[in-house]
Computed example of a mutant assay.
Amino acid sequence: MQSLANNPARRSHVETQINFFTELARRSFDSARKLGELNLRLGRQRLEESINSGRQMLACMQPSAGSQH
Rank of each mutant, 00 (worst) to 15 (best):
M1T: 13
M1G: 15
M1V: 11
Q2L: 05
Q2G: 06
Q2P: 15
S3K: 08
L4C: 01
L4R: 06
L4V: 02
A5S: 05
A5N: 05
N6E: 15
N6D: 09
N6V: 04
N6K: 05
N6F: 00
N6M: 02
N6P: 00
N7Y: 07
N7W: 05
N7S: 10
N7M: 03
P8Q: 00
A9M: 05
A9S: 04
R10D: 02
R11S: 05
S12P: 01
S12V: 00
H13M: 09
H13W: 06
V14N: 01
E15G: 00
E15R: 00
T16H: 11
T16W: 08
T16M: 14
Q17E: 15
I18C: 10
I18S: 04
N19K: 12
F20T: 08
F20Q: 10
F20H: 03
T22G: 02
T22Q: 12
T22P: 02
E23W: 02
E23Q: 08
L24S: 07
L24G: 00
A25S: 11
R26W: 07
R27P: 06
S28T: 11
S28V: 02
S28R: 10
F29H: 07
D30H: 03
D30W: 07
S31M: 07
S31F: 02
S31A: 10
S31Q: 09
S31W: 02
A32C: 03
A32Q: 12
L35D: 15
L35H: 14
L35Q: 14
G36K: 14
G36S: 12
E37A: 13
E37T: 04
L38W: 03
L38A: 12
N39M: 10
L40V: 06
L40A: 14
L40D: 13
R41V: 09
L42R: 13
L42D: 11
R44V: 09
R44D: 11
R44F: 06
R44L: 10
Q45P: 08
R46I: 10
R46Y: 09
R46W: 05
L47E: 14
L47F: 09
L47T: 08
E48N: 12
E48I: 03
E49G: 05
E49R: 13
E49D: 13
N52G: 00
N52D: 13
N52P: 01
N52W: 01
N52Q: 14
S53D: 11
G54V: 00
G54Y: 03
G54D: 09
R55P: 01
Q56D: 11
Q56A: 14
M57D: 11
L58Q: 12
L58F: 07
L58Y: 13
A59T: 06
A59P: 03
C60M: 08
M61L: 14
M61E: 14
Q62C: 12
P63A: 09
S64W: 08
S64N: 14
A65W: 02
A65Q: 08
A65T: 02
G66N: 09
S67D: 08
H69T: 04
H69W: 06
H69L: 05
